[in-house]
Amino acid sequence: MPLLDVQDLRVHFPVRGPLWSRPTVVRAVDGVSLTVEAGEAVGLVGESGCGKTTLGRAILRLVEPTAGRIVFDGREVTKLERGALRGLRRRMQMVFQDPFNSLNPRRTVGESVGEALDIHRLAPNRAARSERIAGLLTRVGLDPAHADRYPHEFSGGQRQRIGIARALAVDPQLLVCDEPVSALDVSVQAQVINLLRDVQRERGLAYLFISHDLAVVEHFCQRIAVMYLGRVVETGPARAVCRQPRHPYTQALLSAVPVVDPQSKRTRIILTGEVPSPLAPPPGCPFHPRCPVAEGRCRTEAPALRIGRDGRAAACHLAAD
């Protein structure tokens, strides 16, 4: 049984249009199924507006799903009462993109990390509490003597380490990381990725790793799901998908990744047009207006995502297995 099992999840947001027009909905997440095994890192890749962040938040019920099921360790998250969510969030934590905005500027680092311990009553007394805070800060590579400093006294990379320490404080089984290194300097990104991998191995942590950076996801994750307009269009083992993408969107996405090696003579697939508005997704395959190989039925019939024996799947009428 997977640690996290998401089935046909939908998150729709009502939108008020111009005056007197009928209210519509944005289908931010529109029928996504995916699983994360214990100790596994699953990458969620896609461009802005594809619904990857909304999906991550819906799994922690930071936004309410419209339909579908989320089962975490055998319990249905979607049915939990508000009061029962606290227990859930002890086992699932989130690390955010922007370490500048996700820490309270008026609290010391020790207070921010300690708050998680207090909420979940994880420290029996003051001495145990400060000992745990010191241990967590040491684990993420910070000096425990800095526990009484404020967030502005740290660099971006250090602040992201604090965010990770806070998430680890409650000993979770799953971390949902939303673009955890995108706001960091290149020379610091690698430090944070290495740290995330070390704690994964020590604690058997599972990750849902949301990122737009395919190279980072291929490096960090065992499996990958590519999203486009609220749906998963391709999924499979990370290396296989990155090496031989089957969906035309994944192919274009991979070919657009900038490559440092000036000798690599790749053919770059430059997609025409832009991601359509999720307010009015195109009929049929959502990718067909930009797809270089689309044909007749792609315009009318939405392709299904069927997982084959090799654990791979591409929602495309024309993709070869």
């Binding site: 020379s187 610091v188 690698a190 395919l214 490096h219």
Partner: peptide, 18 residues
């Protein structure tokens, strides 16, 4: 230090410090 598509490596070669 940056991961490269298709290159298999266990750990990234991070630059220490900030």
């Amino acid at each position: 230090s940056a991961p490269v598509l298709g290159r298999k490596q266990d750990r990234l070669e991070a630059i220490p410090g900030t």
